[in-house]
């Protein structure tokens, strides 16, 4: 139904076991069986991938190890240890982790409620449809929506003031760490619901019945079977949510301007005006981001493969 979840599905499949294992064995075997028609069909795709995905990224990786004159250096990488950049990475990691963990927990709770909570069927389909929309509703407009809700003149802020005489802005600032986290949850929770729902559906009714005939209570079933079976999916989705938040910039930029210096915003400013006064350091910053998102995605792929193997 939805894009994000379906792409996530592919990610789990052949990809995770495929490229490393198979390509490693005999990478060019397919060349011997190629026909001209195949080349015509696949060449533009491969060319596009090289020019607009692989090479720009590799260019940055190489750039991270070059000084202004193009000589090899570790200087840029070492400069990532500077206080401003470390602070950026730290706030980015905190926001991503908080929105991923909360998004995963809340998303799981909602998914369990609509799938296993015996709510009317139309609620489930409505939630799934809405999740498809909300997980794609990010960026600038999302920031506007939360400003209109929790900003200084936002509906909820005003309601709290007029109804309870309570000034929300004293304890909660939309332009802060928690403000950004709460906003990110708007696309993190739906993404979690979309990805975890099939896994919850995959928990067979017979497992809980078998556990019951063997004397287990509902709690014991969840502790020994239900949760362990879901665990790889939870862990995998958690990494995916983390990567998702870590790379996001538009929402934060529109919400906080540059008052909350997360890594993508710092990088944005660096690309705009070389605020770090070192183009190589910009590349190193990018490399840092690539490493972190790639790591999170690798965890996702590996863990998903394990989960799939179980559920055959």
């Amino acid at each position: 139904m939805n894009s994000v979840s379906s792409v996530a599905d592919t990610a789990a499949g052949p990809v995770s076991t495929g490229p490393v294992a198979r390509v490693g064995g005999n990478p060019f075997r397919f060349l011997t069986t190629l026909r001209p028609g195949d080349i015509l069909a696949i060449a533009p795709f491969i060319l596009f991938a090289l020019l607009f995905l692989v090479m720009p990224t590799l260019g940055l990786v190489v750039g991270a190890f070059q000084d202004a004159n193009g000589n090899f250096t570790f200087d840029n990488i070492l400069q990532l240890g500077g206080p401003q950049i470390v602070a950026s990475f730290w706030i980015s990691i905190r926001v991503s982790a908080a929105s991923a963990v909360l998004g995963a927990l809340i998303g799981l709770a909602i998914a369990m409620a609509i799938i296993r909570g015996r709510l009317p069927e139309f609620i489930r389909s409505s939630v799934m449809t809405f999740s498809g929309v909300a997980s794609n509703f990010a960026g600038i407009p999302l920031a506007f929506a939360f400003l209109a809700t929790l900003g200084r003149l936002g509906l909820v802020t005003v309601l709290f003031k007029t109804l309870f005489g309570f000034d929300l802005t004293r304890s909660f600032n939309i332009l802060s760490f928690w403000g950004l986290t709460v906003t990110y949850l708007y696309f993190q929770i739906p993404l979690m619901i979309l990805i975890i729902a099939p896994a919850i559906d995959g928990l067979k009714k017979e497992w809980s019945e078998a556990a019951a005939t063997l004397g287990a209570t509902r709690f014991q079933f969840w502790r020994h079977v239900g949760f362990p079976v879901l665990w790889p999916n939870l862990l995998g989705t958690l990494s995916l949510l983390f990567a998702n938040a870590f790379g996001a910039i538009a929402t934060a930029y529109a919400l906080t301007g540059s008052s909350l210096n997360i890594v993508p915003i710092l990088l944005y400013a660096q690309i705009r005006g070389d605020v770090l006064h070192n183009p190589g350091l910009g590349a190193a910053l990018a490399l840092g981001m690539i490493v972190i998102t790639a790591l999170a995605n690798v965890i996702y792929l590996v863990v998903r493969t394990r989960a799939e193997r179980w559920l055959k």
Partner: peptide, 30 residues
């Protein structure tokens, strides 16, 4: 015709999810 290429092609299609947009555009600008 080429199911053995499938893992490579699918991996490529996932790259935009792994590489954040800001990294891509930074790469393009350079």
């Amino acid at each position: 015709r080429a199911p053995h290429l499938r893992p490579i092609i699918e991996f490529i299609t996932l790259l935009p999810l792994i590489i954040p947009a800001i990294i891509l555009v930074f790469g393009y600008i350079r």
